[in-house]
Nucleic acid binder design. Structure first.
Lengths: 327, 327
DNA sequence: CGGCACTATGACAACGTTGTCGGAAGGGGC
DNA sequence: GCCCCTTCCGACAACGTTGTCATAGTGCCG
C-alpha cells in the first residue's frame, strides 16, 4: 500500500480511502491512486484489514461425514445458497464418521475464526465446543444432535418415519419385517431402530431382535445381512434400509434374489423411481434441512440469543412399488 | 494474549512461545501459561499471526458448477482428500454455470489469499485471473480449459470417449444415432459433439445435423428432444447422452417409450448398473480427475514453475446392456 | 576466578491495514 | 478582515501476533 501511495504521490491513508470507497477524496486523486494500484497489481491484505477492524472472516464452517455422499452434497448446496445470501462463503470438511477428525476439523475452523459453524456430529461428545461457543462462535448441529451439550439442533423425524414404514409394510400384509441399519452408535441409526421397534409394536407384530442388524454398510456386511435375514426357511418378507447408502448396497445385493422382499429405504435418492421395481422411500427434504440449519445459524450470528432450539422436520413416505409387494 | 501474560505473570512473548510449542520455555512456566489460557478461554488471533508471519492461509479454493451435483461432489471429495494430506482446507463455491458468478467467486477467493485455486470454468474468459496468477496464486483448471489464457489444465478425453461410444453403437448395428448434449458454449459439451461427429465419420455413418441437440438439460428440453429425435417415422435407434444430468433426465423420459432406443451416457453414475436395462456409459475416474488437479496445484504451490501443463485423462466404455441393443 | 556456552525470559519493532484527529485550502457571510 | 464551514488529505496510533536481539542467571571448563 505504501508503494501505491508513493507512486500516486499521496499518503497511504488516502490509498486506504480509495480502496474502501470512502467519500471525501478528490476524483482526480482517486484516479491517480487507481492507476497506481493497477500498475503495481496491488491487493490489499485481508488479514491486516481484519486484524485492524476486528471484523468477521465472512466464512462459515460445515462439517459433514462425506462431502461426496449425495445426501451431504445436497445439504452442502443448500447451506451454500443461504450463506451466499448473507454474503458468506463455506469452508467444508469431511469427518469420515470419525469423531477425532470431526473434532479436529471443528476446532480448526474455529481457530480460523469462522463466523459460525454447522456440524453433522460424528462423535458423541461435544464438550470441546463449549469454550468456542462461549467465546462467540455459534454452532448449529444438524441431522444428529450433539452428544453431551445443549445446542441448536435441526433433525428429521427419524422415529416417525420408520414407524410409518413399518405400518406401510404391515398394511401390505408383511408380518416378518427386517431392519438393516448403520452402526448403532450413530444417532440416526439408533433412532430409526427405535422407530422400527415401536412400529412393530404398534402394528401388532412380534418384534424379533434377530431381524434387526446394525452395521457399517459395506458390500460384505450387507451381503451377509441379506443371507441371514432375507433367505432361508424363516426369512423376512420385507426389509427397511436405514439410510441411502444401505438402500443402494441392499438393492445391489437383492438384484438376483427371488422371491424379492419388499423394500422401503430411509432417505430418498436419485433414480429411485426408475429402478425395477421403483423404490419406496421415507423421504425428507434435505435442502430444507440445510436451509433451516443455516438460517438458524445466521440468526445466531446476527445476535439472536434465545434458548437453544430443537427443530424436527417432517418426513413422508413415498410409495413407489418396492414396498407394496404382498408376501 | 496480554491478559494471559498478566495472569500468568510472564511477558506476552513467553505466552507466544507456549502457544507455538517453541522450545526454551521452562515446563513450570508453560504450565502456568496453559492454565491461564484455559481460564481465560484464550484463542490466538490467526489474522494477526498470518499478518506477522506473512504465512499462507492454509486454504485452497474450489469453484465448480454445483457442489450438489454428484459429479462435482465426488470431485470435491477427492480434492479435499489431497488438500488434507497437505494440511490444507477447502473453500468451495458453486458458479451455477454462470460466468459472472464464477469470476466473483474466484476473485473473492483470491482476495482471501487462498494458497491456490481449482476452477471448473463456467465462462470463456479468464483474463481476469492473470493478475492474480502473476501475483502468486497458482490456478489449475479442471474438466474444462480456461478461455483465453494458458494455464495448467486437467481434462478427460471427451473426444475419444464419444468416438468410442459411436463406434460401440455402430458395432451393434445402429445407423441412426442421436446426440443429446448440454449447451454448446460449455467446453465439454462442444467437444463431445465434435467426438460424436468424428465418430460418425469414422463409423461410416452419414452425420446428420438434425440428430444432434444441445440444450440445458431440463425436464422439458429433454422431453422435447426425445419427441423430436427418438420417436416418429425417421427416429434414431440409439442415443448418446452428453453428461450425467442428461442421462438421468433422458432415462426418465424414456421410461415409457417403446421400442426403447439404445442408450450410452457420458459419465458413470450410481445405480447405472441396477437399472433395467443397465446403462452403458463412457466412464472416467472423477476422483482421479480431482486428485490429479489437486496434486498439480500443490506442486505449483510448492514452487514448481515449469511450463503450464495439460493433462488428459483416459475414459473407457463400460458396456452394461443399454448400448448393446440391436435395432 | 575469568570466560564461555547454554537456558529462560523480556523489550521492542514490525507485519499492512484503518480509525481518529487535526490541519490546510478555499468559499461564503458578516 | 474575521469567523466559520466544508472539502480534502496526512500523521499517528492501534489491532494481536512473532522475529530479533538483549539480558540475567547457571553450570562447566581450564
Amino acid at each position: 500500500m505504501s508503494d501505491v501511495a508513493r507512486l500516486a504521490g499521496v499518503s497511504i491513508k488516502t490509498v486506504s480511502r480509495v480502496v474502501n470507497d470512502e467519500p471525501a477524496v478528490h476524483p482526480e486523486t482517486a484516479e491517480r491512486v487507481l492507476a497506481a494500484i493497477e500498475q503495481l497489481d496491488f491487493r490489499r491484505n485481508l488479514d491486516a484489514r481484519n486484524l485492524r477492524r476486528g471484523s468477521t472472516t465472512g466464512t462459515i464452517g460445515l462439517v459433514v461425514e462425506d462431502v461426496g455422499n449425495p445426501f451431504y452434497s445436497e445439504l452442502n448446496r443448500a447451506v451454500e445458497r443461504i450463506a451466499a445470501s448473507f454474503g458468506r462463503h463455506v469452508l467444508t470438511g469431511s469427518s469420515g464418521e470419525n469423531s477425532d477428525r470431526e473434532r479436529e476439523l471443528a476446532l480448526e475452523f474455529c481457530a480460523r475464526r469462522v463466523d459460525g459453524m454447522l456440524v453433522v456430529p460424528a462423535g458423541a461428545r461435544h464438550g470441546y465446543l463449549v469454550p468456542e461457543m462461549r467465546a462467540g462462535t455459534p454452532v448449529v448441529f444438524l441431522d444428529r444432535p450433539p452428544g453431551d451439550i445443549v445446542a441448536d439442533t435441526v433433525l428429521v423425524d427419524n422415529l416417525g418415519g420408520t414407524i410409518e414404514a413399518v405400518a406401510h409394510l404391515a398394511r401390505h400384509g408383511h408380518r416378518r419385517i427386517a431392519f438393516l441399519g448403520d452402526r448403532p452408535d450413530i444417532f440416526t441409526a439408533h433412532e430409526r431402530l427405535q422407530g422400527f421397534r415401536e412400529g412393530c409394536v404398534r402394528a401388532g407384530l412380534r418384534y424379533d431382535d434377530r431381524l434387526a442388524l446394525l452395521r457399517t454398510p459395506t458390500r460384505k456386511s450387507v451381503a451377509d445381512a441379506v443371507r441371514r435375514l432375507l433367505t432361508g426357511p424363516d426369512h423376512a418378507t420385507a426389509v427397511i434400509a436405514g439410510n441411502n447408502r444401505i438402500t443402494v448396497q441392499l438393492l445391489r445385493e437383492l438384484a438376483h434374489v427371488t422371491p424379492r422382499p419388499a423394500v422401503v429405504g430411509f432417505d430418498d435418492f436419485e433414480l429411485a423411481d426408475l429402478l425395477d421395481p421403483p423404490v419406496t422411500v421415507i423421504a425428507h427434504d434435505v435442502s430444507r434441512l440445510g436451509e433451516a440449519a443455516a438460517e438458524l445459524l445466521f440468526a445466531r450470528i446476527h445476535g439472536e440469543d434465545s434458548a437453544p432450539r430443537k427443530v424436527v422436520l417432517p418426513v413422508h413416505l413415498v410409495p413407489r412399488g418396492s414396498g407394496e409387494v404382498t408376501p
